[in-house]
Design a protein around this nucleic acid. Structure first.
Length: 386
DNA sequence: ATGCATGAGGG
DNA sequence: CCTCATGCATA
């Protein structure tokens, strides 16, 4: 099943040195190789070929909670206290303390448990799942509690011409998903958005394959087969297996995709292929990608059978591109953010600013962190119920 | 494999 | 500003 067993990961070594560290130089978004235009894309994906590392399987060590006392977090010394109404050290500390307590109660210490749930377990306020977490009942934390929305491949060159006419629906994958984030939409059980005021806790929604299928059918979409989490999971595994057998890396697959010349389908990154295989994409995303990867797999195996190799053009790496910098949030700050998130997953801009100030992080960094955290939470929730 | 980031599309 | 798909950079 979608085992969200690895949602949280490593913390950088930099964690010990400062709140934030960055590498590389800043740069605008000018090179943006990300197009999501409905159209194909001449997206050139020329990333580092030396990037993957698949040894057997998921042997990744899970991070074990550092025991550093959260109460001892070092807040930015420069904070004065009342720049932001509604936030103050006391409240924040309490929020963190609560979160910390909850985390510890989750049995995070038990390596045998579900390490990945150490976080999402805290957020289940919108699900039927038993929220082990007590909503902080601090009666008057004006800011935080008031407004919660709820309360080397040889295969790099696939023949450009071939188009296995099999059955690859070629719909623009980039936009098959609904943009109405708040309704599950016809696309089936995309984990219920946590913010439905009065939602399904009591009745059956498209939570079961059958229900999803039905919903899909009603909506005019084909039933289960393609949307069933089981099927997706099975496919992802087969895909990986066969890919490895072909001796193709995730990055190779991504690039080769463009050679399939499927309408609306361009190259993808190693990241995306990896996420597909590990089921760490949204359900909708998985559904959209499946037919495409399936098409590639079939084509690749067909070519492998014909033993036709072909020297490809050595890709020239355009030297001198600016590197995007990647912020690294240190462990203590991250814990604080997680604590906030547990209390309020969707802080207002002002709160974000306040939090950023406290943690001595850029506001945008904090905002993005919350965005990413929400995406992550969503995936975990979905996975959890399947 | 995953953390932080970008950008399209929608409000 | 959000969500969502996706990518670069990096552990």
């Amino acid at each position: 099943m979608y085992s969200p067993d690895k949602m949280m990961g490593s913390k950088g070594p930099t964690g010990l040195h400062g709140p934030i560290t960055t590498t590389g130089a800043c740069f605008p978004g000018r090179y943006s190789p990300t197009y999501r235009s409905p159209e194909p894309m001449g997206r050139r994906c020329m990333p580092n070929p030396s990037n993957f590392s698949f040894r057997g399987l998921h042997l990744r060590p899970h991070r074990i909670l550092e025991d550093a006392s959260i109460m001892c977090n070092s807040w930015s010394p420069k904070y004065n206290g009342d720049l932001f109404s509604g936030l103050n050290d006391g409240l924040i500390s309490r929020a963190e303390a609560l979160a910390a307590v909850d985390i510890k109660h989750q049995g995070s210490g038990g390596p045998a448990g579900l390490p990945q749930l150490k976080h999402d377990m805290m957020y289940h306020h919108s699900m039927g799942a038993p929220p082990p977490v007590s909503r902080p009942q601090m009666g008057h934390m004006d800011g935080l509690e008031m407004l919660d929305p709820i309360s080397t491949s040889s295969m790099t060159t696939l023949t450009p011409m071939s188009e296995t006419p099999t059955h690859m629906h070629s719909y623009g994958m980039n936009h098959v998903m609904n943009h109405h984030h708040h309704h599950g939409g016809p696309l089936s059980g995309h984990g219920g958005p946590g913010h439905h005021p009065g939602h399904h806790t009591g009745h059956p929604g498209p939570h079961h394959p059958a229900m999803a299928a039905a919903a899909a059918a009603v909506a005019g979409l084909h039933p289960d087969a393609d949307t069933d989490p089981r099927e997706l999971e099975a496919f992802a595994e087969r895909f990986k297996q066969r890919r490895i057998k072909l001796g193709v890396t995730q990055a190779d697959v991504g690039k080769a995709l463009a050679n399939l010349k499927l309408p609306g389908v361009g190259a993808l990154s190693q990241s995306t292929i990896c996420r597909f295989e590990s089921l760490t994409l949204s359900h909708n995303n998985m559904i959209a990608l499946k037919p495409i990867l399936q098409a590639w797999l079939e084509e690749a195996e067909a070519q492998a059978k014909n033993k036709r190799r072909d020297p490809d053009a050595p890709s020239v790496l355009p030297a001198g591109e600016k590197k995007r910098k990647r912020t690294s949030i240190a462990a203590p700050e991250k814990r604080s953010l997680e604590a906030y998130f547990a209390v309020q997953p969707r802080p207002s801009g002002e709160k974000i600013a306040a939090i950023a100030e406290k943690l001595d992080l850029k506001k945008n960094v904090v905002r993005v962190w919350f965005c990413n955290q929400r995406q992550k939470q969503k995936r975990m929730k979905f996975a959890a119920q399947h």
